[in-house]
Each structure stands twice: as structure tokens, then as C-alpha cells.
Design a protein around this nucleic acid. Structure first.
Length: 574
DNA sequence: GCCGTTTTCGGCCCGACTGTTTTCAGTCG
């Protein structure tokens, strides 16, 4: 499903990696990395753009614009091919080993001809690295350890796993004597869909007891590094946790720094330098006198740079700096804005909560409306029938009367068949309050077929929401191959909302696709897809993902009051 | 290789920790 932009971004990232192994100019390498990010996040398809428009992409100048054009025309870039000749693909793999970077990879390849992880492992065992400059016994051990990690998991963990771990560590560190503040930062605070390692920040005068609290935590399996300001550990589940301790006066600067992203921080530091300032995790300083200017809150740090406070979920260098300067940072949708949930299950199909329990739990969350959308019969394992559905409807209507503060809606999650048909005829579907429709089978159709299939589902007047639109399962199933722009156009034209499914292993649509869809005027439904009472809270991950897609409450139909949502549903059916 | 209301040339973010070092390079975030 790679867009041309993603292909070009990956190509330039590879080029940057290869240049770093061959010892290329560090600034040139950074330029290619920056251009790769700019191209990957650019909203227009680079294969349709002329030179001048290519050069308006952040980080793209004359030389890179030419290389993009060359790639679009020929499918290859001569400069990249040349450096590929010099560095076998296995050598690039070496830098994926923790503690092994481009310099060591280059030394191993040039001096010993090592060009794969397997060869490196064998070379260490046969003591071939002995005597190689810069490679002592500890380095050998670290590399072997790194190879084991790479093979075992090396994988990123899902948001809910990382957040649970972070909350546990934050509680332990907060309880240590002298801890003034403690919270998680990093990609977790930015709500990235998967987390590589968990960053925890604390403030204290004496870091000793805090570091000890982390080291002594029962979840810690291994201590990677232990210093006065930073301790890194690996948990029994293989997740790395970094704890940084700073003085309370530096809290804001440190939180800003450790929240990232790296690309965002590069931008803020450059802004500081241009203003005659120096920004570090300890504060914003006058670069001439070294005098501290601000450091206590993030608000002050951004303010002194001429920016409003920027929400962590936007800090990816995807235009938030420019929006800050223009005063156009959006008021992002929050969990408090959500008024309902339009995709949930009960034990009538594959849920584990009874209808009554689910509805009571939804009411306890203070929702204004709540839709029960059990699976339809074309998913044979669910054993659904029209009779069961109608019987459930009677109970839903009763519950609706029992909960005067909350509309209980009766819906269903239909299956989008291979050619775009759904389970029941219009006469039956029209009696539901709303229908979600999702792909649950035939995941490998070609793009044209898959696109027609989804567009047909959008055109069905009874379908209000497309559920988990790309059907991916993070780390387990690739997204379906669909022309997203075609789908977004169809949604906007037919008044069909796209779901932001908040299950942590789905998060579907994902952030960048939300950003793109919004440009087409698409509306979104943040849904829990809850199969149990405990899943209703997953919407926090959906909100984080929506924020990463720059959505406001106005973009999200589940943040609308019921009368506005009812109008939207009726308009889609007319 | 990119970029510019200080610059079309000369800059380009910055600090912590580890390991192999006799003063610092490499890696990481």
C-alpha cells in the first residue's frame, strides 16, 4: 500500500544510512533524513509534481528534487545505486543491532568483510574481532547481547502495554523520598501507535533514591546504564525504560526536550539559535552570556521562542511550528469532548459483556448516546440471525427508556463482502438506528477490486460508518491494499464517516491517513469497538490518534451532540 | 545537501553514558 511518497522517503532514508556507513558528510546525511521525513509527510503525491513544487516540500532543494524526478521517471536513482554497490544490504542490517552504529559497522565490513548479522555472530565466536581497534571484550559482549535482542523481540510494544508499564514505574519513582514530580514523556506522551522505549522524567534535588526505586522495581530484568542523571533498564517483557532526573527548576525544559520528537526538537533548537539563545534539557539560555532565561514550564519555553504551547501529539515536525507562528494551531479534540460511542459488541456475538452491563458502563462514563452494533450473519462464526437481532432490539429499546440521560441506539456491524455487498437488504437495514460496515475477509484482493468494494459500501445509504477502514492488526496483519484517496472522496461525497478504531492493536485509521482524509472533508467516528466493559476506555487511544491527525471536535461525529449526529445519519440515508 | 528580514557562503541541536581510551570516539535519544 506504499504511496510513492513513502517509497521515496524509504529510499532517501536508506541512502542516508548507507552514506553514514561509508563515512559521508554528516550534514548531507542529515539533509537526506530530513527530506525523507518531509516527503513522507507531504500531502500531495510526489509522482504528480513538477520540479518547482517538489522544491516547496520542506527539506527538498534542487539536488533532491532532481533525484525524486529521476525516481519517478525511471524507478531508480543512480546515486543510490552507486552507494548500494559499495555497501551490501546486510551491512545496513548491522546498524539495527543495539549499540552498533554506522562507524562500527563500517569497520567490521572494511576490515573483516562482515556483511550480515550471522557472519558477525560467527566472527565474534571465532575471536576474529580480537585486535580490531575499538572492539574490546565488552563491545563483543554487547554486540552478542544486541543480536539476541534483535532476534527475540526488538519489537515495539502497543500503546496500552507501554502506558501500563509507565504508570507502574511512575508510581514507584513518585513514592521515592525526595521525588518532587514524575511523569512519562517521549513517544508515549505523543501517543505514537507503538512505543520503542518508555521515557520517564522526574524532578528531585537528590536523584539517588529515585534511581534506586527504578532499579529495585520488580519489573526490571536488567540494568543497561546507571548514572546520576540517567538510568536505563530493560523490563522482564523486554521493554527499555529510561529514567531522567532533573532539578525542579528545569522541569519545563526537560519535559519539552524528553517529549520530542527529535525532529520537533531540532526545529525548536534552531529557532533558539536564530534568536541568540541556546535550548537544552536544562533550559533556554542566552548564548552570549550563558544566563538562564526560562526553564520551569513548557509554556514559558515555547513562549520565549515566539510559539504557543504545542500539544505533544502534534510535535512531529508536520507543520506544528509553522502553525504556531501563524497562530493556527488547532484546538484538538479531547476525551472530554466525546459524547458517544458508535461501535460496540455484546455477548450476543463475540463480546464478553452482557447488553445490560455494557449499557450501564457506558452510562456510568457519562455518554450522551451509545450504539450496540453486534456482528451480522455473513460472519458465520457469530451465528447471527434476523430473529436474534430483532429480539435484541426490543431489549435495547427498553434500556433506552431506562436511561433517560443517554440514547441507546440499535445498530449492527455489517460485513463488506468481496464485491461490496453487505449482509441484509435495505428493507431490513433501514430499521437500524445506524450501520457500521467493515472488511473482515478477503484481505488480499488487488487494489482496484478492494477500492471498488469499499466505495460501494460507502454508496450504500444505510452505511453510516466504515469500521477499521484498513483492517490492519499492528504487528500481525498488513493493511488491505486500497486507494485511500478514492475512498476519502467517496466518504466525503456520500456523507459516510470513517472510523478511528481505538483498539490498541488496530488504531485504524492511523494518524497520517487521518491527516490526509481530513483534507478531503471526511468526518470521523472515534469508537472503542469494545468487546468488554473494560474496553470502553480504549477511546483515549483513539483520541490520541485523532489528535495526531490534527482533528478538532468538529471533525469527529462522536463529539457532536445527538441532534447534530441524528441529522448527519438521516442526511446519509436520503 | 539545504537554507537565508544578520548570510547566496558558511553555517547546520546537544548532552549522557559506555568502553577503550592515555584524552576521546561511538552510540543513543
Amino acid at each position: 500500500m506504499a504511496r510513492p511518497n513513502d517509497e521515496v522517503a524509504e529510499l532517501f532514508q536508506e541512502y542516508a544510512d548507507l552514506l553514514s556507513i561509508t563515512g559521508g558528510d554528516a550534514f548531507k546525511i542529515r539533509s537526506y533524513e530530513k527530506a525523507a521525513r518531509g516527503i513522507g509527510g507531504y500531502h500531495k503525491d510526489v509522482s504528480t509534481l513538477g520540479t518547482s513544487e517538489l522544491r516547496s516540500i520542506p527539506g527538498v532543494g534542487a539536488s533532491i528534487a532532481d533525484k525524486i524526478a529521476e525516481y519517478v521517471a525511471t524507478g531508480t536513482v543512480a546515486a543510490v545505486e552507486r552507494v548500494r554497490q559499495k555497501v551490501p544490504p546486510g551491512v545496513r542490517r548491522l546498524v539495527a543491532i543495539p549499540t552498533l552504529g554506522p562507524k562500527k559497522a563500517a569497520a567490521l565490513y572494511e576490515q573483516l568483510g562482515i556483511s550480515s548479522v550471522e557472519e558477525l555472530e560467527a566472527a565474534i565466536h571465532s575471536e576474529a574481532l580480537r585486535g580490531l581497534k575499538g572492539f574490546g571484550p565488552r563491545t563483543e559482549e554487547n554486540i552478542l547481547h544486541g543480536i539476541r535482542l534483535l532476534r527475540q523481540s526488538g519489537e515495539r510494544v502497543l500503546l496500552d502495554t507501554a502506558l501500563g508499564l509507565a504508570e507502574e514505574i511512575v508510581a514507584a519513582v513518585s513514592a521515592a523520598p525526595g521525588c518532587l514530580r514524575c511523569t512519562h514523556a517521549g513517544s508515549l506522551r505523543r501517543f505514537r501507535e507503538t512505543i520503542g522505549d518508555v521515557d520517564v522524567l522526574a524532578a528531585a534535588e537528590d536523584s539517588g533514591p529515585l534511581m534506586a526505586a527504578l532499579r529495585d522495581s520488580p519489573v526490571v530484568a536488567e540494568i543497561i546504564a546507571a548514572g546520576e542523571k540517567k538510568t536505563s533498564v530493560r523490563t522482564t517483557e523486554g521493554v527499555q525504560v529510561d529514567l531522567r532526573v532533573v532539578p525542579a527548576a528545569a522541569w519545563g525544559a526537560a519535559l519539552q526536550y524528553f517529549t520530542g520528537s527529535q525532529a520537533h526538537n531540532v526545529r525548536t533548537r534552531v529557532m533558539a539559535v536564530r534568536a541568540g539563545l541556546k535550548l537544552s534539557e536544562y533550559g533556554l539560555f542566552d548564548s552570549g552570556t550563558g544566563e538562564l532565561i526560562v526553564s520551569e514550564t513548557e509554556d514559558e519555553v515555547y513562549g520565549r521562542l515566539g510559539l504557543p504551547w504545542i500539544p505533544p501529539t502534534l510535535r512531529e515536525d508536520r507543520g506544528e511550528i509553522e502553525a504556531g507562528l501563524d497562530g493556527t494551531v488547532p484546538r484538538l479534540v479531547t476525551e472530554a469532548d466525546l459524547r458517544g460511542d458508535l461501535h460496540t459488541h455484546t455477548d450476543l456475538t463475540d463480546g464478553v459483556g452482557s447488553l445490560e452491563h455494557m449499557v450501564d458502563a457506558a452510562a456510568a462514563r457519562g455518554l450522551e448516546y451509545y450504539a450496540v452494533t453486534d456482528h451480522a450473519p455473513d460472519m458465520p462464526m457469530q451465528r447471527m440471525t434476523a430473529e436474534k437481532m430483532l429480539a435484541q432490539r426490543e431489549r435495547v429499546r427498553e434500556l433506552d427508556r431506562k436511561h433517560p440521560g443517554m440514547r441507546v441506539l440499535h445498530g449492527t456491524e455489517l460485513n463488506i463482502g468481496p464485491d461490496g455487498d453487505v449482509d441484509w437488504p435495505h428493507a431490513f437495514l433501514r430499521e437500524f438506528d445506524l450501520c457500521v460496515a467493515s472488511v473482515h475477509s478477503h484481505f488480499t484482493q488487488d487494489r482496484a477490486t478492494m477500492t471498488r468494494r469499499l466505495v460501494r459500501a460507502c454508496e450504500n445509504p444505510d452505511v453510516a460508518v466504515i469500521g477499521h477502514p484498513t483492517a490492519r492488526l499492528i504487528g500481525r496483519r498488513e493493511p488491505i491494499d486500497v486507494d485511500l484517496e478514492e475512498l476519502f472522496r467517496a466518504c466525503a461525497r456520500t456523507g459516510t464517516a470513517l472510523e478511528i478504531n481505538a483498539q490498541p492493536d488496530r488504531l485504524d485509521l492511523r494518524d497520517e491517513h487521518i491527516l490526509l482524509a481530513k483534507r478531503f472533508g471526511v468526518r470521523f467516528a472515534i469508537d472503542s469497538d469494545a468487546h468488554a466493559v473494560g474496553h470502553l476506555g480504549f477511546v483515549r487511544y483513539g483520541v490520541g490518534t485523532a489528535q495526531r491527525g490534527w482533528l478538532t471536535a468538529d471533525d469527529v461525529i462522536t463529539a457532536w451532540p445527538w441532534p447534530r449526529l441524528r441529522e448527519f445519519l438521516e442526511a446519509g440515508r436520503s
